[in-house]
């Protein structure tokens, strides 16, 4: 029997988190190359919840491994971590991967710690060399990619959100129920008093067709605010670099890149963005990239399809002026 590669299936309200579906794509490729199988690992409090879930049926994996127990109603990290570690001990998988959601990033270290194995973070690509799996992640500060490997088994990592696109499976995966030992301790030291569901606006940035993003080259918060005008003229969304978010010009939800979201629009325009790797990994999948920057040597200028060498703030001003004039004349 071939070894398993697990993807953690973050399941809530009868839906799989898209991040769990995204990470199946590279894992599927790795499994094919290494002759292994991919299984989505889902913990739930009732079979009813999981049954006939469209997300699961469409998932691009060989199997879905299900653990169902009433204690799994809320995600309590100590218990979930123990359950996952127990399954890993039972199944001895080749690798276990989590989407870098809040939940995935909280559970993965509990599992890795319990098993005393290595855990990589923010992985956004894989390479295979002589049957060995290497994980790629951009590093801090410089335009450098690190290629990592794990000395321990299973190989574990959290994978960046939006780094991979979802692929639909050819047929519905086989569902396998997993039983834990009779004497397994289902207790948690965490008691949930209440859980208030907040319906959050899905981050429209990651699915936007047009993204206009700004960096420190816009110089002021006021200039950055003008991006919202341009975005509404182009029916797009506003993105930002990390320093801009840290400077408080805009909410961190707008951050594109390693620590933010990855975007895959048809059009991306970067204003005053030099293009450090922190940011560019998040825009690589854009179809058409425009850079506006005073510095001809900026990395974003080099990867752009079209680069405008000029003061970003001034170009932004004139674009808004001209576009709003033409949209008015249409009326």
């Amino acid at each position: 029997m071939s070894e398993i590669i697990y993807a953690y299936g973050e399941f809530f309200d009868r839906k799989l988190h898209p991040g769990s579906l995204e990470i199946l794509t590279p894992l599927r490729d790795i499994a094919s190359a290494l002759n292994k199988k991919v299984a989505l690992l889902i913990l739930s409090s009732s079979l009813e919840e999981v049954k006939n879930c469209e997300d699961i049926e469409r998932a691009d994996c060989d199997e879905v491994h299900l653990v169902v127990h009433e204690s799994l109603h809320h995600v309590r990290d100590d218990l979930y971590g123990r359950v996952l570690a127990q399954i890993i001990r039972q199944k001895n998988p080749f690798g276990v991967f989590f989407p870098a959601t809040h939940q995935g990033s909280s559970l993965a270290p509990r599992v890795a710690g319990e098993l005393q194995v290595g855990l990589c973070a923010h992985v956004n690509g894989f390479t295979l060399k002589e049957g060995n799996l290497y994980m790629l992640r951009p590093t801090y500060g410089d335009n450098i990619i690190a290629e990592l490997y794990s000395k321990s088994r299973p190989i574990m990592a959290t994978l960046s959100l939006g780094a991979f696109s979802i692929r639909e499976g050819k047929r519905a995966p086989r569902v396998v129920m997993i039983d834990l030992p009779k004497d397994f301790n289902w207790e948690s030291k965490i008691r949930v008093r209440r859980a208030i569901k907040v319906k959050r606006e899905p981050n429209r940035l990651s699915i936007a067709k047009v993204v206009v993003a700004g960096g420190l080259g816009l110089k002021t918060k006021e200039n950055f605010q003008k991006l919202f005008e341009l975005a509404s003229l182009l029916e797009g969304e506003v993105g930002a670099t990390r320093p801009v978010c840290h400077a408080g010009w805009v909410d961190e939800g707008r951050m594109i890149g390693v620590s933010g979201v990855s975007v895959r629009p048809k059009l991306y325009i970067g204003f005053g963005i030099s293009g450090s790797i922190q940011h560019t990994v998040g825009i690589e999948n854009s179809e058409f990239i425009v850079a506006v920057n005073i510095d001809k040597e900026a990395p974003l200028v080099k990867i752009a399809n079209v680069a405008l060498i000029a003061d970003a703030g001034k170009v932004l001003d004139t674009l808004i002026k001209k576009l709003s004039r033409s949209s008015q004349s249409e009326l």
Partner: peptide, 15 residues
Amino acid sequence: PTQVASVFEKTISSK
């Protein structure tokens, strides 16, 4: 247990 095998600069070709 996690080790860095290599680091490489992201090569950017002007396109």
